[in-house]
Structures are given as C-alpha cells and as structure tokens.
C-alpha cells in the first residue's frame, strides 16, 4: 500500500522535474541525458520500493506506473491544456528570418542549434530560413523561404 503511494508521488515528482528541465535542442539522447536518466531513475526506485524488495511489490509498482502513464496519456489526448502542461507547446524561434530573442534565451537555444537544424533540413544557410519552430519533443523544424 505504502509503495503504491510512493510510486504515485515518485511519478508526478519525476514528471515535474523532467518538465521543468529545458527542452534540449536536437531531441536525441546525449551522454549527458544518460547521466540524468540513470541517476534519477536509480534514486527514485530506491525510495519507491520502501524496503520491500519482493516481486509482488515490484509488480504492483510497475502496474501503478503503467496506469498513471496511461491516464496522463488519455488526459493529454482529451485536453490540449493538459498536453501543454505535460509536453509544453511548440515555439517559433525564427520569425520571417528574424530570431526571437525572448524565446531563444528562455529555452536556452543558441544560434548554433538553429544552424544545425537548418543544415539537417537541407537548407544551405540561415538567411534562407523563413521559420524555425522548437517542437514539443525538442526538435527544431525549419521552413525555408519560398
């Protein structure tokens, strides 16, 4: 019973912590992300198990986390507001060729990140970018000038 409560608290605390970390440009998992994943994952599991290392406890916690994840995914699909809270909203980084400093500074996105996304989109240079959008998963979509 206590483990279930700990699992619920752990899930939402982890969700909050991951959510308030800035979206990393590029969206892929880097070495730095692995440090976070392993360390936070390892620490939270110790507290959640609450000294009960039985298979029964492990199964109950896995089911609880599964249910929570399913519920959050369902809420996201039903309400755009929940989706915005959990995943964030897309943000325009480059508007008609001009960088939006407020958004880029707050999201810790550099011109270099936009340059990388520009090349990945097979656009030769920044001055040919009409729009660049930071997506919810951290990737940058580039729309070239016509």
């Amino acid at each position: 019973m206590v483990s279930i409560v700990y699992a619920v608290c752990g899930y939402f605390f982890l969700l909050l912590t991951v959510r308030v970390l800035k979206r990393r440009a590029g969206s892929g998992i880097s070495m730095l992300d692995f440090v976070l994943i392993f360390l936070i994952g390892g620490v939270i599991i110790l507290g959640t198990m609450a000294q009960d290392r039985s298979m029964t406890n492990a199964v109950c916690i896995v089911i609880t986390v599964g249910f929570l994840h399913r519920t959050v995914a369902w809420a996201k699909s039903k309400s755009p507001r929940v989706g915005a809270l959990v995943d964030g909203v897309p943000l325009v980084l480059v508007d008609r060729g001009q960088s939006r400093k407020e958004v880029m500074d707050h999201m810790r996105i550099t011109d270099l990140d936009v340059d990388i996304a520009t090349r990945a989109a097979r656009v030769p240079s920044r001055d040919q970018v009409e729009y660049a959008v930071l997506e919810r998963n951290g990737s940058i979509s580039v729309i070239p000038k016509k």
């Binding site: 915005a84 964030g88 909203v89 897309p90 943000l91 325009v92 508007d95 729009y131 959008v133 729309i143």
Partner: peptide, 17 residues
C-alpha cells in the same frame, strides 16, 4: 502563426510556464 504556419504556439501560456 502570422496566418501562415500551423504551429499552435501559445506564447502567453509559455510566459506563465
């Protein structure tokens, strides 16, 4: 956005966030 790109940006929400 700008009546051109379907982004779905909500800058007011983001500023609060």
């Amino acid at each position: 956005y700008n009546d051109e790109v379907a982004v779905g940006e909500d800058l007011e929400f983001q500023r609060k966030w």
